[in-house]
């Protein structure tokens, strides 16, 4: 899921002040931002109270089912059309994809209420870790299911680097070096080799990505 954190409150205040907003509609997200405890009903209510404490009017709020889904968010926006119309701005507690979807669905100025951080694994409730950078050319087949692109702070495909010490990482010193873990697991599975992984193909991650599975499943 997409991991988010609350945007610094001063920035939100500045954003609203920049257009002289007196009233705000708030939109959360029922998926990732709810699981991340950043844009579910509880957090939307907290933000509403904070805005009201500043003397702003909250014309209404909703937590869309999947805010990054264009069709669903358009529908949600129509449902709350009156409240949105009455607001000077819409504050979105969702990831950047959700914010853009809302911005495409309403005519009012839209502001982000969260910072989008990474695609995260849920380790436990409230504890998230980045394990995949979505590089478009997965090497997990060769690295025993441990991603060096993401979990080695330098993103080295071949390692360890010279800073590894007693199995620990140079950069994140409280963590085991990714390449030590990879080699151990490969050895345990009797498939450790000497080969070098070839340089990554960055053309695979040309931005912006797009997939149309209705066509031929092509992506760019």
């Amino acid at each position: 899921m997409i991991i988010t954190r609350p945007r610094d409150w001063e920035r939100i205040e500045d954003n609203l002040a920049s257009i002289g907003a007196r009233s705000v509609f708030i939109m959360g997200c029922g998926q990732c931002a709810t699981v991340a405890h950043t844009g579910g009903e509880t957090e939307v209510a907290e933000v509403a109270a904070r805005l009201e404490a500043l003397g702003l009017e909250v014309t209404g709020w909703t937590v869309g089912e999947v805010t990054c889904h264009l069709g669903g968010t358009k529908l949600e926006s129509r449902k709350h059309g009156g409240d949105i119309e009455a607001a000077d701005a819409v504050l979105v507690l969702a990831c950047g994809a959700g914010v853009q979807t809302v911005a495409d669905s309403v005519t009012k100025p839209v502001f982000p209420g969260l910072e989008s951080l990474f695609l995260g694994n849920v380790i436990r409730n409230g504890i998230f870790e980045e394990r995949c950078l979505m590089c478009g050319e997965c090497v997990l087949d060769k690295t025993a299911g441990i991603c060096p692109v993401t979990t080695c702070p330098k993103g080295l495909l071949n390692g360890p680097c010279g800073g590894m010490w007693e199995g620990m990482c140079e950069v994140l010193t409280d963590r085991e070096c990714t390449h030590v873990r990879i080699r151990r697991r490969l050895t345990e599975q009797h498939r450790a080799g000497k080969g070098t992984l070839a340089p990554k193909d960055f053309s695979k991650t040309l931005k912006p990505g797009g997939v149309n599975i209705r066509g031929h499943g092509d992506s760019r």
């Binding site: 080295l156 390692g159 680097c161 800073g163």
Partner: peptide, 25 residues
């Protein structure tokens, strides 16, 4: 050929560590 220390260890800690290649490559 060497990998190089992480930028956060140096005097430009906000730099992007390129690491397009590693030292073996």
């Amino acid at each position: 050929v060497v990998t190089g220390d992480d930028p956060r260890a140096g005097d430009h800690p906000n730099a992007k560590g390129v690491f397009d290649l590693d030292s073996t490559q």
